[in-house]
């Protein structure tokens, strides 16, 4: 099979584009898509300091690689989740990538800094493992970005992640979440801007890019992934995609172009500092502090015991930037 752009031999076929590319042309196309995303959503301004959340997986390492190549001032943050060998290997891979690129990596260990790890939180907490994991990641990333004086947090969410999240929210008509799903969330009081420069690229593309760039990434799946809702939504999308290539991109990118505006509404959320940690929330204590207190069996402040919200509210939303997690309760 020939490359669409040159006489070279194709190494990857992208059925949704009805095209195949050689190694060099594919890498160019990939980087073009990242640049396009950054430009269209004004993700990174001149002189911005960027913190990329790296997990050791294909997406976040590919993202870090591209942002470094594009000349951005970008450091990495790795959060140790304490998931046995899986976490050990993820940290090693991330650290050796940083070293090979001469890039700056900060490592935060959840157990050391906050007193719990993800397997324990999954067993003891009222939330699903993935929900408390996602919540912890978002909290720690934001805190690290604020403390480190970063302007932007970049995450490796790809097209499949975003389409699966949109599907999940649509299936349950979570209109607040649908309205806020965006590749670029502006900064708010105490909240650093968040961007997803890979949102135009499929999982197949990010994996191929990472592979072709010689990036050693963790192929193994997190051992706690069983039952992850987003994974089921991905499989459903892939089943549709298999018979009509391009549906996934049409669904999510079409939402950004034509659907999102229909869900726009006044955002009347008012943020105040969490009574425990000071990060912004609409409740007295932020979702992170409430979940953590519940896992550790502690009480927050002097007030009445903490009431932890309904497990399903967050369980179904584990992989996404969730306003309810960040801001407390979604507006009514």
């Amino acid at each position: 099979m020939k490359c669409r752009r040159c006489p070279g031999t194709a190494v990857i076929e992208l059925r949704r584009h009805n095209a195949a590319f050689c190694k060099r042309c594919f890498s160019e196309v990939f980087v073009e898509q990242v640049r396009k995303a950054i430009r269209r959503f004004a993700m990174i301004g001149a002189g911005d300091r960027v913190l990329v959340a790296v997990s050791g997986g294909k997406d976040s390492l590919a993202l870090w690689d591209v942002l470094l190549d594009l000349g951005y001032d970008v450091d990495g943050l790795y959060l140790g989740l304490g998931i046995g060998e899986y976490s050990d290997r993820s940290r090693e891979v991330t650290a050796s990538f940083a070293e090979s690129r001469g890039a700056q990596l900060t490592v935060v260990d959840l157990a050391e800094e906050y007193g719990y790890d993800i397997p324990t939180a999954g067993r003891k907490g009222a939330r699903s493992t993935c929900a408390v994991c996602g919540l912890s990641k978002r909290y720690v990333f934001n805190k690290a970005a604020v403390d480190g004086g970063y302007d932007v947090i970049a995450t490796g969410h790809n097209l499949d992640d975003e389409a699966a999240t949109l599907l999940g929210n649509t299936l349950r008509w979570k209109t607040e979440y649908i309205a806020r799903q965006s590749p670029s969330l502006a900064a708010e009081t105490g909240m650093v801007k968040k961007v997803k420069p890979l949102h135009r690229l499929s999982e197949l593309e990010t994996a191929a890019f990472a592979f072709l760039r010689g990036i050693d990434y963790v192929v193994d799946e997190c051992p706690l992934v069983a039952g992850n809702t987003q994974l089921r939504h991905k499989e459903a999308m892939n089943a549709i995609e298999a018979s009509s290539p391009g549906t996934k991109a049409e669904f999510f990118l079409g939402y950004l172009d034509r659907g999102k505006a229909l869900f726009a509404r006044e955002d009347d959320v008012e943020l105040t500092p969490c009574g425990e940690c000071g990060q912004p929330t609409t409740a007295r204590y932020c979702a992170f502090c409430r979940a953590r207190a519940q896992v550790l069996g502690e009480r927050l402040g002097e007030g009445p015991p903490v009431v932890v919200e309904d497990r399903d509210v967050v369980a179904s939303m584990s992989g996404e930037v969730m306003p309810i997690e960040i801001y407390g309760r979604a507006p009514a």
Binding site: M1, V11, C133, D160, E203, N228, L231, S318
Partner: peptide, 24 residues
């Protein structure tokens, strides 16, 4: 990397590596 249109010989060794990941 090879595409689905490429041919494999009996003596070839392949790795089939999934790209789907859960949890974000």
């Amino acid at each position: 990397l090879v595409t689905r249109h490429d041919h494999v010989a009996e003596s070839d060794q392949l790795e089939v590596r999934p790209v789907i990941s859960g949890g974000g």
